[in-house]
């Protein structure tokens, strides 16, 4: 926390110096970024934006809202650039001609793991929400991290989607990291929601992937430059900057130090969703 605040302070000083030295030519180069709470809460933007501002002399004003509201802000012209994860709405947004460009930036990929035998038969579920519903209905145990992490938040969002209140004997929280939670889930023959990376990295697990690949297990983040009458150059700059290899690498590394696992998978090079 402290180091991040320090970084922000240093970056702010850099911005002031840059504007002081370069005169008025680029004084107006600022843009409004509308993004989802998840990117903001994860600390990713705090990590990246100061460097972007230093690199380009741009000043970004960030508005953290839900994906839907972010798109609405773009449609109204109250935002210059969007970083959102709502693919269907985004495509509609582009089709309606509100956006100039839409580039895949990153995603996180979750899987539902469980006992080999899959007692809740979630393998045939249509999406993760249904998979969770099946688990709840079967009474099979489910291990939650219960630690307010991003993965925990995703899991809670899926429960809400499924319309199930996760509580009871079958549902338990470990309060520990993903790896420990997976180990415990394996030993207790429980299901769990995990990011794929940690699942792959945890050795000697007595669990396998029970359900994967549905849209509601992926958070695809796209950067959309909003079509405006007076386009802000910085909007285009941010979209480009986020796709630069070094920045993509930083996105892939983000969170490893703090959580022991990457929070996002960079998508620019793969070029696909």
């Amino acid at each position: 926390m402290r180091s991040r605040a320090l970084l922000a302070a240093v970056a702010a000083a850099g911005v002031l110096m840059a504007s002081g030295c370069s005169g008025g030519s680029e004084a107006a180069s600022e843009a409004i970024l509308a993004t989802t709470t998840s990117t903001q809460d994860s600390g990713l933007l705090d990590e990246l934006l100061p460097d972007f501002e230093e690199d380009t002399g741009c000043t970004m004003k960030t508005v953290a809202v839900g994906s839907g509201e972010a798109l609405e802000l773009g449609e109204r012209g109250d935002a210059d650039v969007l970083l959102v994860h709502s693919p269907d709405a985004e495509e509609e947004f582009m089709a309606d001609g509100h956006g100039v460009s839409r580039e895949p930036v990153m995603h996180n990929d979750f899987v539902v793991v469980g006992p080999e035998a899959d007692p809740a038969e979630v393998g045939g579920a249509a999406d993760a929400a249904q998979a969770l519903t099946l688990i709840a209905e079967s009474g099979a145990p489910f291990a939650s991290r219960g630690d307010d992490s991003g993965t925990h938040a995703k899991e809670l969002a899926l429960w809400e989607e499924a319309g199930v209140e996760p509580s009871g004997d079958w549902y338990f929280e470990t309060g520990q990291g993903m790896g420990e939670t997976l180990t415990i889930a394996g030993q207790k023959s429980a299901y769990a929601l995990t990011d794929r990376g940690t699942f792959l990295a945890t050795a000697n697990l007595e669990a396998s992937i029970a359900f994967e690949g549905s849209d509601d297990l992926q958070n695809y983040y796209h950067a959309i430059v909003v079509d405006r009458e007076e386009p802000a150059p910085c909007a285009e700059d941010l979209s480009t900057w986020l796709l630069e290899p070094e920045v993509q690498e930083r996105i892939g590394d983000f969170g490893v130090e703090e959580y022991g696992e990457p929070l996002f998978v960079p998508d620019a090079e793969s070029g696909e969703e």
């Binding site: 291990a143 338990f172 929280e173 470990t174 309060g175 520990q176 420990e180 415990i184 030993q187």
Partner: peptide, 11 residues
């Protein structure tokens, strides 16, 4: 306690 118990909330 951590390794054997697992710190499972409520259990």
């Amino acid at each position: 306690a951590t390794i054997v118990g697992g710190n499972i909330h409520g259990q």
